[in-house]
Amino acid sequence: MGILKLENVAYRYKDAPKDKYVFKNINYEFEQGKMYAIKGKSGSGKTTLLSLITGLEKCTEGHVFYDGKDLKKMNLDKYRNTEIGIVFQSYNLLPRLTAIENVILSMDVSKVKVTNKKQKALELIKSVGLSEEHCNRRILKLSGGEQQRIAIARSLSYNPKIIIADEPTGNLDKDTEAEILGIFKHLAKDENKCIIIVTHSQNVCNEVDVIYELK
């Protein structure tokens, strides 16, 4: 059984006409240890679907189940800070904090039990290919690729089962894109994470196990 299941999911904006859905009857299932790509044209509802999976929005019809539990019945703040890691195209890190502080903040919010949070954050940052030197830099002093690695490290800080990324390589060059995809692949295969990437990049689609297309 998959860790995440979308059952007859449909979404309509609140101010839209009753028959005007962004998408309808979505039935996807996601498993741990695999990489997924959700692709589609601009305006097809990729980011909206991401927001339903992450609990930032609620679906108009249907259900999203995480580990067999309906998201509608779950504390979505707790779900986001313990069960699912989110990586955005524009990284969404706090610029007033340093790289390591962003990772530690995420641990604080999730209340994960770690003896030495700083040490753990350092390990995570190293695991995404950055050095100790990057740790104490403010976010804006880091390159796009470095920021995206910090965003991935942050999403891993509370060891979630799912990592969902919205166009994670959209702002990166090809080499960096390959490095980032390598990290995701490692997380899926070696760390048994379920990686869901919302993208329209063919390079990304070539690296994943399953592709869902929104029309």
């Binding site: 779900y79 986001r80 800070n81 706090l94 919010v109």
Partner: peptide
């Protein structure tokens, strides 16, 4: 933006 980031990472 800060509010958005906090809400995304699960701050109530």
């Amino acid at each position: 933006y800060e509010i958005g980031v906090f809400r995304t990472i699960g701050v109530s």
